[in-house]
Design a protein around this nucleic acid. Structure first.
Lengths: 189, 189
DNA sequence: AAAAAACGTTGACATAGGACAAGCTTTTTC
DNA sequence: GAAAAAGCTTGTCCTATGTCAACGTTTTTT
């Protein structure tokens, strides 16, 4: 159950086995179904999630009912509604597992406890933030001024498995184009 | 010269004056002209900048010669080509002061030295990353699926001074719309 | 202070891509 | 495993917004 998480930690920092065990002891397993909602629009996010198996998605729905997907985490990735998790404001978004999934969940209190007491964990968190920031930045550049075809090429380049893994509809909502347009582009390679 | 930076630090953490002085001692003043380039496209970013006065902008130019602005930092803000600063890859963007500015500059080595040795500084850096991440996320939601009018309203809501401070052209390149469109929208309130 | 360059605004026109709908396929439900 | 629901693809049509150009204004240069 914890092997992927342990591998994740050990691959990022030099750390004693006891500390890894201690860290893992705060993560509780959670099995979810396809399309299960973990955090709702007006809730405040109190958990951090590690994906052992499956996939989680962050998305919002605007007043016209249109979904926008912001983030996906697959096996071996961390994810949560981070702005809400940090600031303890309502998420204004949804966190869901889009497939039957196995997650490891840590509470916000425990998470920050680990950040405060285990320097290696603080470093891992810092790297998550740095990486998240870089990814978000790339996404802004990757989308600004790109037409639909360029966006699709960009995602194939930067996240090769993405289009194979998520539905046409969700992929389109991540790229900021309509499902029809994505479908048309894919049919032309 | 260092008063704004000191205020910035003290407003974010409990810290001894000697440590604040120590931190400041690593920041060197730098005066720049309007439109001065600090970091070029193929360079690797080795500095972090604090804006004492003026404004810095991060932008890139695509193959058609179109500028995209990614980030602005005004008085009292930190800024750099963070992805490059973190990963030591070429920036693939430009960092410039768009007005005559006074900056405080710290080298990457000194910056990470402070992160490693002064926990409060590490915390400030973590908050910068968290905030940067949140801002980037909001921007993604703020732009995905919004039409031009909604983008302009969004920026007025979220960064009220923005349109007053930067040129029409740069604002448009930040919002991902053409200068003509921005101009037309502004004329209709 | 004059000349040149850059910028902002506005009009006319063109077009990428969204909306909607129909038909087909896949997935889910009972 | 049949029925229902959801998703994918593709056609037609339409609109928001980009492009280009002209003109006036502001800024920069010398």
């Amino acid at each position: 159950m914890y092997t992927i998480l342990k591998k994740y930690i050990n691959s990022r920092t030099q750390i004693k086995d006891e500390e890894v065990e201690l860290i893992c002891s705060f993560f509780k397993p959670l099995k979810t179904k396809r399309n299960e909602i973990l955090v709702r629009y007006d809730e405040i996010c109190q958990q951090y999630y590690f994906v052992n198996k499956g996939c989680i998605r962050l998305f919002t729905i605007n007043k016209e009912g249109i979904e926008t997907s912001r983030f996906f985490a697959f096996e071996g990735g961390f994810g949560t509604a981070l702005p809400s998790f940090i600031d303890q404001q309502p998420t204004y978004e949804y966190l869901q597992t889009i497939e039957k999934s196995e997650l490891l969940v840590i509470s916000r209190a425990d998470f920050y406890h680990l950040v405060a007491t285990i320097p290696q964990f603080a470093m891992i968190y810092r790297e998550i933030l740095e990486l998240g920031f870089i990814t978000a930045q790339k996404r802004i550049y990757g989308f600004q001024g790109f037409d639909a075809l360029e966006k699709v090429k960009w995602i194939i380049e930067n996240q090769p498995h993405f289009l194979l893994r998520v539905s046409n509809k969700m992929a389109a909502s991540y790229l900021g184009i309509s499902p029809s347009t994505l479908s048309r582009i894919k049919s032309k390679l």
